[in-house]
């Protein structure tokens, strides 16, 4: 059937050609096939392939955007991390300096306290020494006075007469002082 058709195609076209061809070949089917296929393609493009391609393009775009966004957020988080790291380092430095300062302050306060205590001790020592000296002085004076009275008493007993205490006191005291110095 087909070979004959091709022979016919090469034949000279005349009025009977189409009719003769039509007898052997369903020319109508050719037209119907092309027509149906074209209609199918147009309809599918409108109702199926077009929307589907749109969705696929949309997805491709979405994925591209997502990748871009992910890249962006990655960079951002890296930046934030760097920032946090710097802040942490700064805070650590601050804390270190605060501790150092506190140490230094404590040290100086300790020094001060020690110095103050030492001064207090010295002062107390001095005042005690002073007090002791005055007490001693006082005691010596009291002893001396007592000794004078006893000496006068003894002398009056020895001499058998009343020695005027008022007259001789100055003399005796002088003697005692001299005796004290000579000792």
């Amino acid at each position: 059937m087909f070979g004959e058709s091709f022979v016919l195609l090469s034949a000279k076209a005349d009025a009977g050609f189409l009719a003769a061809l039509n007898d052997r070949l369903n020319l109508g089917d050719i037209i119907v096939t092309v027509l149906f296929f074209t209609i199918l393609m147009v309809l599918l493009k409108k109702f199926a392939w077009g929307p589907l391609m749109g969705v696929m393009d949309q997805r491709a775009e979405l994925i591209a955007n997502e990748i871009e966004a992910a890249e962006k957020s990655r960079l951002e988080s890296e930046k934030l991390l760097e920032e946090q790291r710097a802040l942490l380092k700064e805070a650590r430095d601050n804390a270190q300096s605060i501790v150092d300062n506190a140490k230094k302050l404590g040290e100086s306060q300790r020094e001060e306290l020690i110095v103050a205590a030492r001064a207090e001790v010295n002062r107390m020592k001095e005042s005690a020494a002073l007090e002791i000296a005055t007490e001693k002085e006082k005691a010596v004076a009291a002893v001396r006075e007592e000794f004078v009275s006893l000496s006068i008493l003894a002398a009056s007993k020895v001499l058998g007469k009343e020695i005027s205490e008022e007259d001789n006191r100055a003399l005796i005291e002088e003697t005692i002082v001299k005796a004290g110095e000579g000792r």
Binding site: L18, N26, D29, I31, V32, F36, L40, L44
Partner: peptide
Amino acid sequence: FGLSFNPANIMMLFITCLIVFLIAF
């Protein structure tokens, strides 16, 4: 219209187109 048609072909082509369209649609 002076053209010969094979109704079986036309029917089967139509069914093919219909099935393809319905699946895709």
